[in-house]
Amino acid sequence: MSTVSGTSILTGRQGLSGRLSDFFWRNPKILLLLMLTPPLLWLGVIYLGALFALLLQSFFSIDDFSGLINYEFTFATYKQLLIPSNFDIILRTVLMAVLVTLASAIIAFPIAYYAARYARGKWKVIFYLGVMLPLWSSYLVKIYAWKLILAKEGILTWFLAKLNLLWLLDAWLALPVVGGTSLSISYTGTFIVFIYVWMPFMILPIQASLERVQGNLIEASADLGGKPSQTFRYVLFPLALPGIIAGSIFTFSLTLGDYIIPQIIGSSRLFIGQAVYAQQGTAGNIPLAAAFSIVPIVIMGLYLWMAKRQGAFDAL
C-alpha cells in the first residue's frame, strides 16, 4: 500500500442498478415520492376516502316510507341524534368511557409506579411482559374469560359463596341501574370487562412518564417534610399526568367505539358502537349510522386537542 494511483472518480458499479442509484442520488425527491406513493395510495386514498364517504353520508337522510337514501344535503340525520332515545345512548357511552378511564387510571397507577421505581432486572422484565401479554392476548378470549367468571354458576359466585358473602352480591344486584338479574347482564359487568380489556393500555404510558422522573425528586419532597400523600398530590401526580392523559386516550377512545363487550356482557341498553352496528345492519339506515359514528370522532378530536395542549403525546 505504498503507491497511490488510479483516478479520483471511480466508474463503480455499472448497469441498471448503478445508473438507477445515481439517478435517485441526484433526484432525492423522486425517491421520496416513490417511497410515499404506495402507503399514501393505500391509507390516503382508500382509507381516508372511505372515511370521507362515510362523513358525507351522514349529511344524507333516509326516506321513512321507502327506506331508500335521499341524496340531498341535510342536517336532519344529525337532529335525530338529539331525540331522547338516541341522545341517551351517547350520554350512556360517554359516561361509561369516563368511568372506565378513571378506574383504569386508579388500578394502573400502582402497577406502573412499582414497575418504574422499584422493579429491577428480572422483575422489570416480568412486569413488562406481565402487562404486554394481557394487552396483546386475544380480545375475544378476554371477554370470553369474563363470561366464564361472571356466569351465575361461575367462579365468582362460587368464591363469594365460600366466603359467605353471597348476600353482598345479591344486595349489589338489587341496586337500580348498576344491578340486574346477574352480573353478566348488568352495567357492572360491562364496566368490569371494559376495565379489564383496556386497562393495560393505561399502564405503559404512565410507566413511561414515571420512568423519566428522577427518584430523588420523591426523596426531595420527603426531605422537605412532605407526607406521602402530599408527595403524591404535589409531585408524583403532576409528573405522571401526561402519561395518564396519554393512556386515557386509549381507554376513552376504545370504550367509546366498542360494540362487542356491551353486546356480550351487559344489559340490553345500547352503546354508540351497538347503535352504529344496528343502524347500518338490521335497520339499513346508513346515514344515521354514519352520524352516530361521527360522534366518537368529534369527541376524540376534542379530547386529543386538549391532550396535546397538556403535552400528553410526549408520553406515548
Binding site: 488510479g6 483516478t7 479520483s8 472518480i9 471511480l10 466508474t11 463503480g12 442509484s21 445515481d22
Partner: peptide, 16 residues
Amino acid sequence: IFGETAEGVPPYRRNV
C-alpha cells in the same frame, strides 16, 4: 478532485 469535476458525482463514485 485531481483535475476531475466533482459536483454531481455521488460519494460512492469518488475515490475519496
